[in-house]
Simulated scan of single mutants.
Amino acid sequence: MKNKLSNMMCLDLFLSSQNEEHYKAIEHHVTASEAITYPLKSFCLYADYFSTKMHNLNRLNDIITVKKFASKFNWNQNLDTIFKNEDFEAIVLTNKKQEIIWVNDGFKEMTGFHKKFALNKRPSFLQGEKTCKKTRDRIKKTIQLNEPFTGTVINYRKDKTPYKCEIKIFPLFSENTTHYIALEKAV
């Protein structure tokens, strides 16, 4: 009985990973009585797998989008180096005036603000009463020096709830700095 249940769990994982064409080719080998007798035990495993897969695809799409901007603006940075080993939820891309020109979908998930709402605003619109002035000053000074910044700041979501946000800002340049990219995550 235990082996049969384990085999069904493995079969379930296998079947859930098949596309429709492959499944149709093998479905006549799976009997309905087996499916009814043994409940789905591996859904959580598959959901975790699917969630990880979607996270990785979204990350890859975000990186591809940033690379399109890099091509358009002739940035000299190796973006793979910037993204390597970085864990982030949101990406905020600003111009030299620090006006937002693009944010990823993770920005809305993290802040509650729609992407279109953020466009042409400065990232400081996320700051508020509990945002540390010293941290704001450090960000400003580091940007003026065209150096990378890493730190944590208190930001505010659309619903006005504060959250700690780890920010890593990198200047992007061709001959001179033209843009900034911020990789952010709630901590």
Rank of each mutant, 00 (worst) to 15 (best):
Y38W: 10
T135E: 12
D80N: 15
Y49G: 06
D87F: 08
K53W: 05
L79M: 10
K141F: 06
F107P: 09
R59C: 02
S42T: 15
F107V: 09
D48P: 00
Q144V: 04
N146W: 04
I101K: 01
G112F: 03
Q77F: 08
F88V: 05
S51Y: 11
A118T: 13
T142V: 10
R122S: 15
H114K: 09
N76A: 12
E129N: 08
N61W: 01
L57D: 10
T65R: 09
H114P: 00
S51R: 10
L93R: 06
Q144P: 00
Q127C: 03
K121R: 14
E109M: 04
Q77K: 09
N146L: 01
N74G: 08
T111L: 02
T65N: 10
K41F: 13
A35S: 07
R138C: 04
R136V: 14
D62H: 07
F83D: 06
T135D: 09
R122Q: 11
A118S: 15
A90I: 05
F88Y: 15
L126N: 04
S51G: 03
S124M: 06
D137E: 11
D137T: 10
K41L: 14
L126T: 07
K121D: 01
K72D: 09
K72V: 06
E129D: 08
K67C: 10
L145M: 11
D105I: 01
Y49H: 15
K115M: 09
H55E: 12
F69Q: 04
F69Y: 13
F113S: 00
L40E: 13
A70L: 05
A35P: 00
E129A: 04
L79F: 13
A90W: 01
V66K: 04
F117N: 08
Y49I: 09
T65A: 06
S51H: 09
D137Y: 07
E89H: 08
W75N: 08
K140S: 13
V103T: 15
T94D: 03
T65D: 02
D62N: 15
R138V: 02
K140Y: 10
N104I: 13
Q127K: 03
H55I: 08
K108F: 07
F88E: 02
N146P: 02
A118L: 12
R138H: 10
F69C: 03
E129L: 08
K108T: 15
R122T: 15
R59Q: 13
E99R: 15
D105P: 03
K108V: 03
E34Q: 12
H114I: 01
A90Q: 01
K97H: 10
T65I: 05
F88D: 03
L45M: 08
